[in-house]
Design a protein around this nucleic acid. Structure first.
Lengths: 222, 222
DNA sequence: ATTACTATTCTACGAGTAT
DNA sequence: TATACTCGTAGAATAGTAA
């Protein structure tokens, strides 16, 4: 959806077009949008063609109603703004570049002492492998340090024979706004504080078509 | 502000640019916005020039932070979507065309038995005159009927000598998204059910430059 | 009155490239 | 490497006007 189209839809919402049919001429709409009557006409044609609005033409004008599809296009933006503006639902924004690691995360994730807990506490069976991200700015590293201080979701360590496995703290995260997963803050790790490991129900690399060096955005829910 | 610019800002918010400096290259931003590196560069230049973002350039890239001004541009849209989507804060959308009436509303508004109550209950001293709007669609008339059933803000009638003045019910309303005022539902009126009268602290006609036949949007807060 | 087509203008995009 | 110029061009916007 084009941004101009979205804004036209948004202005129709502002006229109440999500609740009732709105009687609005293309000339008047043009004034509201800051464009000509012709352009407003084309906008409405496009919005109707794509199913975002429902038009009803009469000789004296038209009435417009936003459809379900139109509402969800508006709601999508609303939800992003809401997570941005509303306090309480605490969100940490992190971004980092993909790199190929030692496979340590994969080792942890598949250890039976952990994997059952992941499934129970996160709601998905982790794909046997993690996505390693290197944080690029001090703000990101600072955010990661703040996360260290928060409780998060703790996956308990265990003792297996002679070796001791430490606790793993994780947080649910949205990956590139597309996939749900989690980040791991493994206490005993070979990496420094500029690395986070990401897990999900399936291979993030494959699902999002990532390769080394690609930038990945994380929204970490606390 | 252009809609493409707004959307670029919105995507920066989605990267967390309202909370911290975000390290993002023009190429990467271009991918997110669905435009070329050059266009993303132009967007950032414009946003920075207009004071919506604060950029910091380094040889290895740049970091971006959304300014106060940028946040308020985003928040403006957020508030509109919120009134649209959130139940509870009940809003009625009405629109009607301006017409010149008998001046009955003005008579009521200036009657001392009423005017003091208006100031006390609405928070403004009404301009001595009302804006008459004729509703154009059955949806609008239906909405007006629903308002009749709601409590609203009641300005008590009184007896002055031999004449009895009835109660006046009113609701706060936003006029054309620009002015704060109220609508009056006068029970004894010469008009039919397709008319609402609008009052405000100053002349709506003058403030908004309205003439007969112009369309006016109302957001009535219940 | 309206909406929307056609013709023309002009803006804004991306390719190429400088820095 | 990065960002951001110039410039040719595609497509969007408006003017004029038909329906």
């Amino acid at each position: 959806m084009e941004s101009e189209e979205w804004f036209a839809l948004y202005h129709l919402l502002n006229l109440g077009g999500h609740k009732r049919r709105v009687l609005i001429g293309t000339g008047e709409l043009g004034k509201i949008l800051g464009v000509s009557q012709q352009t407003a006409s084309r906008r409405l044609l496009e919005l109707a063609r794509k199913g975002y609005i429902d038009r009803e033409m009469t000789p004296r004008g038209q009435s417009v109603l936003i459809t379900k599809k139109g509402l969800s296009a508006l709601r999508e933006v609303y939800e992003v703004l809401r997570t941005g503006f509303e306090e309480g639902r605490n969100v940490f924004f992190l971004s980092g570049t993909v790199f190929t690691g030692f496979g340590e995360g994969a080792y942890y994730v598949t250890k039976s002492g952990y994997s059952g807990q992941f499934e129970e506490k996160l709601g998905f069976k982790p794909f046997p492998g993690t996505l390693n991200l290197r944080l690029r700015s001090i703000e990101d590293i600072r955010a990661r340090k703040e996360l260290e201080l928060l409780p998060g979701i703790v996956v308990k360590g265990f003792v297996n024979g002679e070796r001791t496995y430490g606790d793993v703290k994780c947080f649910r995260a949205k990956i590139n706004d597309k996939m749900d997963g989690a980040i791991l803050l493994i206490h005993r790790t070979h990496y420094g504080q500029d690395v986070v490991e990401v897990i999900a129900g399936e291979s993030v690399r494959k699902k999002l078509g990532l390769k080394d060096g690609d930038l990945v955005q994380l929204k970490v829910l606390v």
